[in-house]
């Protein structure tokens, strides 16, 4: 469902993504990890058409995002790292806007919007302006928008940030259910526990390059040990150097 070939993105002299090749299939939850500044969010923006690649191609459900932009966007849903949503719309109006924008039939909207608001415990806030929502509520609203138009490919950048434990648990279950129904999920996260539990395959990126890709077992083998994903991640990304600095605390 997502086919990335030779993807390069440069910002002036800086290479944010260096020749990425990746394929994510239907029903798969792919975890995309890496330290800050690795190029994860840049990759997400390239997949969703918010940035233009310097080289390489991205196909979503067979549609080239550079050439068949609208077709690709129609089958894709994005949850960005910062859920900025129109402050002067109410929560229900935002969902209505998304429903219309993605061509969801009115009858389906009438049924689904109240359900989604109820599911994310936003029913009591559905008539309030989004400007009065907390970060977590906005995040839930954006997730609700995605579920309304039921994309075949879901791209998420730190989707659990700001969610309360109950909502985070629900979001995880939603992702698992969607994947079971065949939705392709590409997720960036710093929460290794989530990646460990949810993702079938995990990719680790550093300085624009994918340094490891595979299932948790495969990564464990590559890292030569480590009981959990945190150990594996730190082993692969060289994150142990801080130990010396901690002595100064």
């Amino acid at each position: 469902m997502i086919e990335i070939t030779g993807l390069v993105k440069k910002f002036g002299e800086l290479s944010a993504v260096k020749g990425l090749d990746l394929s994510v299939g239907p029903g798969e939850i792919f975890g995309f990890l890496g330290p800050n500044g690795a190029g994860k969010t840049t990759t997400v923006k390239l997949i969703t058409g918010l940035l233009k690649p310097t080289a390489g191609t991205i196909k979503v459900c067979g549609f080239d995002i550079a050439k068949q932009t609208l077709e690709a966007k129609r089958v894709m849903g994005l949850v960005p790292d910062e859920p900025f949503v129109y402050p002067k719309l109410t929560g229900a109006e935002y969902l209505r806007f998304i429903g219309e924008l993605y061509g969801v039939p009115l009858a389906h909207q009438k049924k689904r919007i109240p359900e989604l608001l109820e599911m994310f415990e936003l029913s009591g806030w559905s008539g309030e302006l989004v400007e009065s929502y907390s970060h977590g509520m906005r995040q839930k609203l954006v997730l609700g928008g995605i579920l309304l138009h039921e994309p075949k490919v879901l791209v998420l950048d730190e989707p659990m940030v700001g969610l309360d434990p109950k909502s985070a648990r629900m979001a995880k279950e939603i992702l698992t259910t969607l994947a079971a129904r065949g939705t392709c999920i590409f997720m960036c996260t710093h929460v290794l526990e989530i990646a460990e539990k949810l993702c079938g395959r995990i990719g680790i990126m550093i300085k624009g390059e994918m340094i490891a890709l595979g299932t948790l077992e495969e990564l464990r083998g590559k890292a030569r040990g480590g009981s959990d994903l945190e150990d594996i991640f730190l082993s692969l990304t060289g994150g142990q150097e801080y130990s010396a600095l901690l002595k100064h605390l």
């Binding site: 994005l78 949503v85 129109y86 061509g103």
Partner: peptide
């Protein structure tokens, strides 16, 4: 900052 909604949408 809500521009991403339109930029990512089929419009």
């Amino acid at each position: 900052k809500s521009w991403w909604v339109l930029a990512a949408a089929p419009v």
